[in-house]
Nucleic acid binder design. Structure first.
Lengths: 114, 114
DNA sequence: TATAATTACTACGACAGGTAAAGTACGACA
DNA sequence: TGTCGTACTTTACCTGTCGTAGTAATTATA
């Protein structure tokens, strides 16, 4: 299991990357993260929703209510232009981060890359 | 510049990796990190020393005083058996972490790997 | 029909790691 | 005498994560 301290700083990026593929809401994003990572990473609910409010406060996403006629009302999120820019920056930073950490980590067998 | 949230969870690993090459002390480790990363990552003093005390508390390193006859006395650190085990675990975790984050990050050009 | 499970979210408080700011201590060098 | 480089300590604060709990509606199951 991956410790959250490691992913910390990339939770926002993970969420943005899923919103790039279309508007979504908390529960769905949560399920998508599980699915994409084969259950290897599960974002806690509280972490997820606190990330949403941080992202919205920073102007990287916008929210609106869904029009469900049944079930609990969902809050949908949409990525903004500024959110896309931020996402791109984080992607570049990730390349650099890998380079840095790789210098200190001994890769045994398959590094898990590509 | 790499944000500290990203490296968070790997500062301990970076320190341990340098101690694997021989006993060392704060200032030297700090300089080594800069050197190895070409100044791309600079660990803050307080981060470094708080990592030392955490690592020692966890039994991953041991400290002893140097025998400098001049200058301020140094505190040297040595990695323990348990520290080596922990280091190996973190190395494996890193492989997994990369796999997970890579799924959400679009790699432009050179990923910086290998 | 009762109740458990699933969906969808909110509130609160605690904790850990990182960090700014400041200070201590020593030697060298100009 | 003053400043620079080395080497470390203390304090207080901030942010992100997460445990716990609760609300609210729908759907599955016994």
């Amino acid at each position: 299991m991956i410790s959250s301290d490691v992913i910390r700083g990339y939770n926002d990026t993970i969420i943005l990357s899923l919103l790039l593929e279309g508007d979504s809401y908390g529960y769905e994003i949560s399920k998508n993260i599980r699915a994409v990572t084969d259950e290897q990473y599960v974002m806690k609910e509280t972490t997820l929703y606190s990330a949403f409010s941080r992202l919205e406060k920073n102007g990287y996403i916008e929210s609106y209510y869904g029009e469900e006629t049944q079930g609990k009302r969902r809050t949908y999120f949409r990525i903004t232009q500024s959110g896309m820019t931020y996402y791109k920056e984080k992607c570049e930073e990730w390349g650099l981060t890998k380079k840095v950490i790789n210098k200190f980590v001994k890769e045994l067998k398959d590094s898990g890359d590509h």
